[in-house]
Design a protein around this nucleic acid. Structure first.
Lengths: 343, 343
DNA sequence: CTGAAAGCGCTTACAG
DNA sequence: CTGAAAGCGCTTACAG
């Protein structure tokens, strides 16, 4: 019985199979330079001794770790204990994509203030980095530039814009925002408030805003700047933003929240204010987190295909690691209509 | 500028600092056998060359990976794309606890049917395993026994019962269930339905059921077996279970759902049936997932302290890895009262 | 306090 | 097709 104290090595297998240790290694790496019969003997021994290749040793030799690292970073201001559910859903799909590609995934939560840029790959624990998180892009960008300068392999999830350092995968936020506005306008809404940051500090939110704005202009409805309130992606900030909006006493008949969490907080504030959703105010979110369909009323929102996103992040990073060409990509956005925007 | 092609090694540092490579290693390991001035010279060189110890090499030498693996396993029957939010919250706290203890975390999602028992530690990628997941314990138990037989270091999150293989950390499910019943009885409810498996196949749910049952007996209210309906932890199963309960046409004035997800599904079924929560039926869940407070009405539930749980899982596993004594532990449960159980 | 040397378990030219 | 040998980058007795 295999036991911690006596783990089998390739030498044990070699002895057992009556071949050299080098041959064992060849078999296990799938080298074609091995006679079929010899191969079988080795494989039998591997079976019998429940042998597994020591990944540290092989990685030390090949200089390839077979491991990717996922850095989930959070704004230090946010509540430590609550991770954005959208990212957790991405985490699931990234993990699966790694497994499918025969790689392991190291996970780490980082504060945006940490020196995360220079750790995992430098200590040879990972071949490349996947960066996931909202945060102030203006603060964040120099770190990306440092990664590029260091030659670190990485992909990030986020807005896909011209002139960004490195390779990015993201949702078509502009199209998503546009769809939301189109939907609301189609339902007769005319004064659409936007809850979420709308500046280059938060490019994903900004693109959603710009998409919405573009459609409103096309429809001849000028966007009113008093209808935009800053908010990060949390229920609490959504609640506060909606309160702030109500305090301005400007008329509006719809809310486009930059994320589902913001939308859920906004609905709470609206209800407290005696406004009904969707009768008085239509509300639309973004992300389609698990909670969205269980909100009251169920939330109309924009789906970001996290399954495909995880796959694309992993595959793109692996191309980078292998020095193959890779480029930024945008995934299509898709509107899901639920009650919160219904007439 | 440090560049992928010319990563500094301890030999480079040695040359730079004018010492032997062995001394560099001593400094970096914090050995006391180094002269203060020599140490400083080495540290300066480390700084200058942005050197990081290669974890693979050091791990190969010391036979300690500095890495833990988290295996999140799911019932193959469950929807692949949705991970239980409760586990995601645990994931966050486990990651942080690992970081605090200077370890990395490898994450993997496993189907309960996979041969997960013999992988991570065998290929020396991790020093130990954290097992997280619901699943049929009767199927699951032989795998745990195999892990024990192999001498694998592991801790699992789950029910803490006598005679289990290995070390377990879990919430005091019995006390939690008891609290729920006490709360409901205190609010005048007499016929409490339980939605969730109540058998040794799902020991966590079973303990919750037994705690509830115990209090009902103490209160002189015999538990009615027609008020229990099987369900796994998902919104859909909760919905179906509540429908099945309603179809039985037995009277009940409260629902104790074995998890928040089940509770949320049950509320949907109750509402469809024209029953108001909490006026007609009080509903209580378990877990306090992020969604619970945003449900309509906000859900009374039992908090499991995931922060402390993650810490305890990691610390206990690390004790095991170091061959220090470690034992199973139960975390206290805590009731949070929200509207769903209010009169 | 410091250095020379062995060795962790692999992979892969090199030679046959 | 196979083996002997070097070497990946560390850590740690051993000797001084």
């Amino acid at each position: 019985m295999a036991n911690k104290k006596s783990k089998a090595t390739s030498v044990d297998i070699a002895y057992h199979a009556g071949v050299s240790q080098a041959t064992v290694s060849r078999v296990l790496r799938g080298s074609p330079l091995v006679n079929a019969e010899t191969r079988q003997r080795v494989l039998d021994a591997v079976q019998a001794l429940n042998y597994k290749v020591d990944r540290r040793a092989s990685s030390l030799r090949t200089q390839r770790a077979g491991t990717l690292a996922l850095l989930l970073f959070e704004d230090p201001t946010e509540d430590e204990s609550h991770i954005n559910p959208f990212f957790l859903s991405m985490l699931g799909s990234i993990t699966r994509a790694c497994a499918r590609n025969g790689h392991d995934l190291l996970v780490s939560f980082q504060q945006l203030s940490d020196d995360w840029h220079a750790d995992y790959e430098d200590s040879m624990k990972a071949d490349g980095l996947i960066l996931l998180g909202y945060g102030d892009y203006v603060d964040y960008r120099p770190k990306l530039e440092k990664l590029v300068a260091q030659g670190t392999h990485f992909v990030r999830w986020g807005a896909v814009l011209a002139g960004q350092p490195g390779v990015s995968i993201g949702c078509d936020n502009f199209a998503g925002g546009r769809m939301v506005a189109e939907h609301l306008v189609g339902r007769g809404r005319r004064r659409i408030a936007f809850l979420g940051y709308a500046s280059s500090h938060y490019p994903e939110f900004f693109e959603r805003y710009r998409g919405c704005d573009a459609l409103l202009r096309e429809a001849g409805l000028s966007a009113d700047p008093t209808l935009q309130v800053d908010a990060l992606s949390s229920e609490e900030e959504g609640y506060q933003a909606a309160k702030a909006l109500l305090a301005r006493e400007v008329a509006f008949d719809a809310v486009f929240a930059a994320s589902d969490l913001i939308a859920i907080g906004a609905i709470r504030a609206l209800n407290e204010h005696g406004l009904r959703v969707p009768e008085d105010i239509a509300v639309v979110g973004f992300d389609d987190i698990a909670m969205a369909r269980f909100a009251t009323p169920p939330l109309t929102t924009v789906i970001q295909d996290t399954g495909r996103a995880g796959e694309l992040l992993v595959e793109t990073l692996l191309r980078l690691v292998r020095d193959q060409p890779a480029e930024s990509m945008m995934l299509p956005a898709k509107l899901v209509v639920r009650k919160s925007s219904g007439a």
